[in-house]
C-alpha cells in the first residue's frame, strides 16, 4: 500500500514537472525568442501575404550587402555564419511552412562558400528551429554531443537563458541596433586591418588546413538543387563583393581559376540557373567596405541598387518599390 502511494506520488510529481516544463518552453518561445532579430525577419517572411519575387539565403556577406527593402518584393533570410548544410534545412523548412511563397532564391558562390570550416558549419543554436533531431543526429552522428545538444536545444530550449533575456531587454535591443549601425558605418579605407587580422579571418573562412572545397557541403548544395527543381524554384547565384585585400589573401589559399571553373560548372549543371559575379566590383573602393569582406551602409545601398537592376534585367524581380540615394 505504502509502495503504491509512493509510486503514485512520484508519478504526480513528474507530471507536474513536465507541465511546468511545457509552460516554460511555451513562454520562452512566446516572449524571449521573438526578440531575436533574425527570427523577426523569418516571422515577417512567414506573415507576408503572397509570394516574394526573390529571397536571399546566404551568410553575413549576403546579409550585410543587400538591403531587401531596396530590392522591392524581396526578403533577406541570410544568417551570420550560415553554411550549405544549414541553408538546405532552412530552405526545406520554409518550403514546407510557406509553400508557394518562393519564386527565386539567391544563393552565394563565394570563395569560402564550400570550404570545410564554413560550408560544413552546422550551428545547432541557430539550426534547431529548422532541423528535427533525427536529421541532426544523421548530420553529427549519434554522439554524446548530439545527445547533449538534443537535451539543451530541443528539450530545454530555455536552458541557460540569461544571454537571451539580456538581449531581449528593450535597452539592449536598442544598443544592439546602435552597435550594428556603428559596425555598418565603418570604413575599410580609414581603418585597414593588419596582417594578423587578415590571417585570423583566413583561418575563420578556410581553417588551419587552408582548404576551400568540402564534398559534404557540395552534397548539400546538390540536395538544394533537387529541392529547387522539385518545387520549381529559380536560382540566381551570386559572388558577393569583397575587398581587394581579402581577394589577395584568399587567392593564396583558393586557386582562383580552378574555383571559378568549378563554380561555373555547378551553375551550368543547374538548368535555368544564372550567376552574377560582383566579386571584383569594388576592388578600388575600400571606402564602401566596413571590413575586409562586408560592405558598409553606403556600400550596401549602392550594391543593393545595382543588384536590383540586374535582377530586374534577368526578369527575377519587379522594379523596386523604394529607392534611396547613397
Amino acid at each position: 500500500m505504502n509502495k503504491m502511494r509512493t509510486i503514485i506520488k512520484t508519478a504526480a510529481f513528474l507530471t507536474v514537472l513536465v507541465a511546468i516544463h511545457a509552460g516554460l518552453r511555451q513562454a520562452y518561445y512566446a516572449f524571449i525568442t521573438p526578440r531575436d532579430t533574425y527570427l523577426q525577419e523569418q516571422e515577417s517572411f512567414t506573415a507576408h501575404e503572397g509570394a516574394y519575387d526573390v529571397a536571399l539565403f546566404g551568410d553575413s556577406h549576403a546579409l550585410l550587402s543587400v538591403q531587401a527593402r531596396l530590392l522591392g518584393n524581396a526578403a533577406n533570410l541570410s544568417q551570420l555564419g550560415e553554411g550549405y548544410i544549414e541553408r538546405y534545412y532552412k530552405l526545406d523548412y520554409n518550403l514546407r511552412k510557406n509553400p508557394g511563397k518562393l519564386k527565386t532564391i539567391i544563393l552565394p558562390l563565394d570563395m569560402h562558400s564550400f570550404s570545410p570550416v564554413w560550408g560544413e558549419n552546422f550551428n545547432i543554436v541557430s539550426s534547431s528551429r529548422y532541423v528535427n533531431f533525427a536529421d541532426y543526429v544523421w548530420q553529427t552522428g549519434f554522439t554524446t554531443k548530439a545527445l547533449r545538444d538534443f537535451v539543451h536545444y530541443y528539450v530545454f530550449p530555455y536552458a541557460d537563458c540569461t544571454p537571451e533575456i539580456y538581449a531581449a531587454l528593450p535597452s539592449n535591443v536598442r544598443e544592439k541596433t546602435r552597435a550594428g549601425a556603428a559596425r555598418f558605418d565603418r570604413n575599410l579605407a580609414k581603418t585597414p586591418p593588419n596582417a594578423e587580422q587578415i590571417k585570423k579571418l583566413m583561418i575563420t573562412h578556410y581553417g588551419e588546413q587552408r582548404e576551400w572545397r568540402s564534398e559534404k557541403a557540395l552534397r548539400y548544395f546538390n540536395r538544394i538543387k533537387t529541392l529547387c527543381q522539385k518545387e520549381n524554384i529559380n536560382v540566381v547565384f551570386v559572388r558577393f563583393p569583397v575587398s581587394k585585400l581579402y581577394f589577395d589573401a584568399a587567392s593564396e589559399i583558393v586557386p582562383i581559376d580552378e574555383f571559378d571553373r568549378f563554380t561555373q560548372e555547378l551553375v551550368d549543371d543547374w538548368p535555368g540557373a544564372m550567376l552574377l559575379n560582383y566579386r571584383g566590383l569594388y576592388f578600388d573602393r575600400d571606402d564602401l567596405f566596413a571590413d575586409l569582406n562586408h560592405l558598409n551602409f553606403e556600400g550596401s545601398i549602392i550594391f543593393s541598387q545595382r543588384f536590383a537592376r540586374d535582377l530586374t534585367d534577368l526578369g527575377a524581380l519587379h522594379p523596386a518599390i523604394e529607392t534611396a540615394e547613397p
Binding site: 507536474v16 511546468i20 516554460l24 547533449r148 539543451h152 530545454f156 536552458a159 541557460d160
Partner: peptide
C-alpha cells in the same frame, strides 16, 4: 514542498551554465 523542489530544478535549468 514540491514548489520548492520545482523552483530549484527549474532555476538550475534556466540559469545554469551547461
Amino acid at each position: 514542498r514540491w514548489g520548492i523542489y520545482y523552483a530549484m530544478f527549474f532555476a538550475i535549468i534556466a540559469f545554469g551554465k551547461f
